[in-house]
């Protein structure tokens, strides 16, 4: 009687060990098969802002048009300088990614495009982006031109009035990676290590 109970217990324990082994193996497979997809690129679709004719200004006051999205790989972040929480987090992530890229950072142009052109002049954009990395280029422009550009880039933004009479902006916070033809190929995620972002950019540099 005692023996058979022990046998039962042994059987149960081994079953448990077997189940744990299978689950761990499956989990490892799932995680490892997920890895290349996370770092990977999507197939090129249509170039962004195709056929659009907006004209913005970069932080030096020079013109910035849809053609400028097709000169080089572009990493673009949307935001505004009165944003103290999300935008500094994104821009410092971009700065860390540039750092992780080392000399290869020269192959990508990091842009910070404002969704708040009324307050963000070219000078303010230059000063703000330089806080994080002087290589990040601020882009602003006349409000109607910025609105046209955001629309053609599929970016949402909305002014939200605040109690003190001021306002804040709801906006798309995606960090987009475009190839040298202005086609979206990947997005960056601040929850990933900057090395992962650098890996995505390197992959795109190799393919270009």
């Amino acid at each position: 009687m005692l023996m058979s109970n022990l046998k039962k217990l042994r059987f149960l324990l081994w079953t448990l060990v077997g189940m744990v082994t299978i689950s761990v193996t499956l989990l490892t497979l799932v995680v490892s098969s997920d890895e290349p997809r996370r770092e990977g690129l999507v197939e090129p679709g249509r170039p962004m802002a195709e056929g659009a004719d907006w004209r913005l200004l970069d932080e030096t006051g020079s013109a910035f048009t849809p053609d400028d999205l097709r000169a080089k790989l572009t990493l673009v972040v949307f935001g505004f300088t009165h944003c103290p929480d999300v935008c500094p987090t994104s821009l410092s992530y971009v700065a860390n990614t540039l750092q992780a890229l080392g000399p290869q950072a020269e192959s990508v142009r990091p842009l910070f495009v404002t969704v708040d052109p009324k307050r963000d002049t070219a000078n303010i954009m230059a000063e703000y982006t330089d806080l994080f990395d002087p290589r990040i280029v601020g882009v602003t422009g006349a409000p109607d031109q910025v609105a046209a550009a955001l629309k053609s880039l599929g970016v949402y933004s909305r002014k939200v009035p605040q109690d003190d009479g001021g306002y804040t902006m709801d906006h798309t916070a995606t960090m987009l990676l475009l190839d040298d033809q202005g086609r979206p190929r990947s997005t960056l995620d601040i929850h990933e290590a900057p090395e992962i972002a650098a890996g995505k950019i390197r992959l795109l540099i190799e393919k270009s």
Partner: peptide, 16 residues
């Protein structure tokens, strides 16, 4: 003022 950032899909929103 105390604020809260919320991420709704790809959109980031801030509210009191």
């Amino acid at each position: 003022v105390a604020h809260q950032t919320r991420q709704e899909g790809s959109v980031s929103r801030m509210s009191e």
